[in-house]
Design a protein around this nucleic acid. Sequence first.
DNA 1: AGCACGATTAACT
DNA 2: GTTAATCGTGCTC
Length: 198
Amino acid sequence: MFTRISRPFFSRPTLDVARAVMGMRLVRLEGETRLAGVITEAEAYIGESDLGCHAKAGLTPRTAVMYGPPGHAYVYFTYGMHWMLNFVTEAEGFPAAVLIRAIQPTEGLEIVAARRKGRPSAEWANGPGKICQSLGIDRALNGHDLCAPEAVLFVENGDPIPDSSVTIGPRVGLNSVPEPWKSVPWRFRVTQGIGDQG
DNA sequence: AGCACGATTAACT
DNA sequence: GTTAATCGTGCTC
């Protein structure tokens, strides 16, 4: 069976967490309904010195969650219409997080399909905004404790993904971020076995 | 109070 | 390939 991931998992170097979540299940509970998918892409955002990370602005109302304890959700709004889901990592006081960029939906497919109406299944959750749309994640889940017994958003163990199936490369969407932060290889994605991204 | 811009997406040409 | 949509955030005045 699948076991829930507990806090020590997130209280580690962010790059380790970003790699380790490959193949794990992201689970969202909506009352009696369970929605879930296998994580196939993630990126690391690490500290105030990382100019691609929101924490470059220091401790603000928006970034406060990243400064808090690990194992919580950092959910933020961007481009006037999209929500993004992150897992807070590392020790409390150090601002870092893993952005979940893609999942392959495995449970609650009827609801996911309805929320992604008219689109092929391959495009249901192959982007950070699409994940939040399909799983019903928004501001209400910012700061949510992923490790609490009563959590409605959490992570479960999945089948481990071998290194041969994981591609590492630069993060996406940081077009105006200066080097080296724009190009550091802090993006991980499953390119064989699960998912359909190449 | 005003401003520029964004860890994106979908719909165009 | 380009671009509109759309608004919270952090910065400047």
